[in-house]
Design a protein around this nucleic acid. Structure first.
Length: 115
DNA sequence: CATTTGACTGCGT
DNA sequence: AACGCAGCCAAAT
């Protein structure tokens, strides 16, 4: 086959990373899951692991649909995330531009539940 | 191979 | 409500 790639053509992502990205891509618009919830769905890793994966590889998936346990959007991305929530009609609580929270009781998505 | 690094979490103060 | 903190675990260094 081809000789060992010299520079860095197409780096293959670690299997765990691909599984995280695939699952995030399935979260319906207007719904969210928490980092810890996602880790449990995958059956491995933890909340921080998922967060680290999204930080590094999440730019091409709906990363704003993965939020913190308390309903807070990802650290440092509250503004860009908020635009998406408004656009998708995700139920929010609170008023501040950077102090709002997702209404988890309404927005939480559970793939094992009704879709 | 050993250590450090996080878009986190739950509990205590 | 706001901190601090130990536990977490795959990836990156």
């Amino acid at each position: 086959m081809d000789p060992p790639s010299p520079a860095r053509p197409i780096e293959r992502l670690p299997e765990y990373v691909e599984r995280v990205l695939e699952t995030v891509a399935e979260i319906p618009a207007g719904r969210v899951v928490t980092y810890g919830q996602l880790a449990r769905l995958l059956g491995s890793g933890g909340a921080r692991t998922v967060g680290t994966v999204l930080a590094r590889y999440g730019s091409d998936v709906p990363w704003w649909r993965v939020v913190r346990a308390g309903g807070h959007p990802p650290s440092g991305l509250q503004l860009p995330a908020r635009e998406q929530y408004l656009r998708e009609g995700t139920p929010l609580l609170g008023t501040g531009l950077g102090e709002y929270r997702i209404d988890m009781s309404r927005a939480r998505w559970d793939p094992n539940d009704a879709g």
